[in-house]
Computed example of a mutant assay.
Amino acid sequence: MNDSLDILIFGAHADDAEIGMGATIAKHTAAGLKVGICDLTYAEMSSNGTVELRQAEAEEAARLLGLSLRTNLGLPDRGLFMSPDYIERITMEIRKYKPRIVFAPYWQDRHPDHIACSQLIQEAVFNAKLRRYLPEMEAVQVQQLYFYFINDVYEADVMVDVSSWYDAKIAALSAYRSQFVTGQDTVSTPLNQGYVERVEARDRLMGQKRMITYAEGFVSKLPLLVDRFA
């Protein structure tokens, strides 16, 4: 069985990828590409919801977005740091699924776990191509590493027109009721105080730059290569 993916997206917590690029995911899966998400933690430190509930929500979001797979490395929530063991486990995930393109959170964000996740993925993408690193697994050269925005938005290098797929993003975010909806047993957090509406406003503003309804923006540390301008 071929486990290879076209795209592998990493997030510190379930819902990170959906916030940053849920509509882009839906657009690519609808086109027949194999897309997977790897969550680094079970978000066990979340103020609302349980680990079990958040896992069920993540699986529902995965179904709505048409993911080929969703995995979780079970690293400690609020305990992500530059550990050789963590880098090794992420590298093994990349080598197992051999993605052409990897996405990670942007390296600046108000949440320390998102920053740490970004750093860990960059290290793992680099190590994945080294044939003498974990030589028992075949080295994998990722063609492109992109960064998506979660809480804080900076200047994008590239944007994707997701106007026709934005409903899928909202549906996926709505699966995370424990995070984005207030209830009798919830406490107030930035996520359940109009957060989804602010994400939508952000994506509308991004689209306005190119006169489209919605866009999701991404950053690349490498220059984007084009064949010609025509």
Rank of each mutant, 00 (worst) to 15 (best):
1 M>A: 13
1 M>P: 06
6 D>A: 04
7 I>H: 08
11 G>Y: 07
12 A>Y: 02
17 A>W: 01
18 E>K: 02
21 M>N: 07
22 G>D: 03
26 A>I: 02
27 K>A: 14
29 T>G: 12
30 A>C: 03
34 K>M: 08
34 K>G: 04
36 G>Y: 05
37 I>Y: 02
38 C>I: 15
38 C>L: 06
39 D>W: 05
39 D>Q: 08
41 T>P: 09
41 T>M: 07
43 A>W: 01
43 A>L: 03
45 M>V: 09
49 G>D: 08
51 V>R: 11
51 V>T: 14
54 R>G: 11
55 Q>D: 13
56 A>Y: 00
60 E>H: 10
60 E>D: 14
63 R>E: 13
63 R>W: 00
64 L>I: 15
64 L>C: 11
65 L>H: 07
66 G>I: 01
67 L>I: 05
67 L>K: 07
67 L>W: 06
68 S>V: 00
70 R>M: 11
71 T>C: 07
72 N>Y: 01
72 N>K: 01
73 L>G: 06
74 G>H: 02
74 G>V: 12
75 L>S: 02
76 P>W: 04
80 L>P: 03
80 L>Q: 04
82 M>S: 12
86 Y>M: 14
87 I>V: 15
87 I>W: 05
88 E>Y: 06
89 R>I: 05
92 M>W: 03
93 E>T: 14
94 I>A: 11
95 R>I: 02
98 K>V: 07
103 F>P: 00
104 A>S: 15
104 A>E: 04
105 P>R: 10
106 Y>H: 15
106 Y>C: 06
107 W>G: 06
109 D>W: 06
114 H>V: 12
115 I>K: 13
118 S>E: 08
120 L>D: 08
120 L>G: 06
120 L>Y: 08
128 A>C: 11
128 A>I: 00
130 L>H: 08
133 Y>S: 05
135 P>G: 03
135 P>W: 02
137 M>K: 13
140 V>I: 12
140 V>M: 10
141 Q>R: 15
145 L>M: 10
148 Y>G: 06
149 F>P: 00
151 N>Q: 10
152 D>A: 11
154 Y>D: 09
154 Y>P: 03
156 A>T: 05
156 A>W: 02
158 V>E: 14
159 M>G: 11
159 M>Y: 01
162 V>I: 13
162 V>S: 01
164 S>I: 00
166 Y>L: 09
167 D>L: 08
167 D>A: 14
172 A>Q: 03
174 S>P: 00
176 Y>G: 08
177 R>T: 15
178 S>L: 10
183 G>E: 12
184 Q>W: 05
184 Q>L: 13
189 T>A: 05
190 P>A: 08
191 L>K: 08
192 N>V: 11
192 N>F: 05
193 Q>M: 12
195 Y>S: 03
196 V>I: 15
197 E>N: 11
200 E>H: 00
200 E>I: 15
200 E>D: 11
201 A>Y: 03
202 R>M: 15
206 M>T: 15
206 M>L: 15
207 G>K: 00
207 G>D: 04
208 Q>D: 12
210 R>Q: 13
211 M>I: 06
212 I>A: 04
212 I>Q: 02
212 I>M: 11
214 Y>H: 14
217 G>F: 09
217 G>L: 10
220 S>F: 08
222 L>I: 06
222 L>V: 10
224 L>K: 10
225 L>D: 13
226 V>W: 10
226 V>H: 13
227 D>W: 06
229 F>V: 13
230 A>I: 11
230 A>D: 13
